[in-house]
Design a protein around this nucleic acid. Structure first.
Lengths: 132, 132
DNA sequence: GGATCGCTTGACGTTAACGTAATGTAACGT
DNA sequence: ACGTTACATTACGTTAACGTCAAGCGATCC
């Protein structure tokens, strides 16, 4: 921790439960851009939130390439309007997809709940028979 | 459509937007078990709901192996109690994970919404400047 | 000053989830 | 009978996302 609040690669790995190889891989794929102190990597606040978003994206089944585009969206310059509008549209699209995903997830959850209720029922009857 | 409501492989592909290769692959991995009429595959109602669940699972980032175990859960015999209990526990575990995922998804959605609001703001100011 | 520790950079290996190409056969129209 | 269509099997190829292994550098501990 040379400077202010920078993490070493090890601290990152421990904090986020990933391997060094994974972090270097993400860097190579231009998902992360740690500062270099000599040869070492230093991960500031920005890189940490980025990693957070990456891992979350993965849990939702997005590919790293998808995620990279999402991340790019997060820190666009906003200097020219066309660019800005394009980014905005992209984000809206993404939002719509995530809301759809949530609807589906809700459906899946309630189905699973039914399934569980049936299972509990079956178990109860099974025990009733066994107890006679 | 030889019998009652069986789908051919092509009908399946068209209905669910997958390739024949994918269906055969799922069969090889024991996720689907179409009936054979001679050499042809016939997909009944059961196989169709299974495929539906498979595709949904994929969209949530589950691996095929994960999904296979889930599917097995759906049509267990329930003959012996130990088995039944194990299945029940597994399902509860799965439910917990999905609910966690939903919470995370909600978080991600509201973050994205904030992001969008900021974007709209930036755009508005950008235009205000340009209009003077 | 030698060993260890933590990090580095290649480079090749691995697994999942299919794609693709080659070849074969069963049914069907003409 | 023949060609086309629709399906089949077998087998090798591909991409993403890392794992693993080899070899080297820089600081630190003894």
């Amino acid at each position: 921790m040379t400077d202010a609040d920078s993490f070493s690669i090890r601290q990152m790995c421990d904090t986020y439960s990933v391997t060094p190889r994974t972090l270097r891989f993400y860097e190579q794929k231009e998902l992360l851009f740690p500062v270099r102190l000599g040869t070492q990597r230093l991960y500031g606040k920005r890189e940490r939130t980025r990693l957070h978003l990456i891992l979350r994206g993965k849990r939702f089944g997005f590919s790293l390439e998808d995620i990279r585009q999402l991340l790019d969206m997060y820190d666009r310059d906003g200097s020219n309007e066309a660019q800005l509008v394009r980014t905005y549209d992209l984000a809206q699209d993404r939002l719509a997809r995530m809301e759809a995903q949530r609807a589906e997830l809700d459906e899946a959850i309630s189905e699973l709940r039914d399934q569980l209720a049936q299972g509990a029922d079956l178990l109860a009857r099974h025990r009733a028979v066994a107890a006679e």
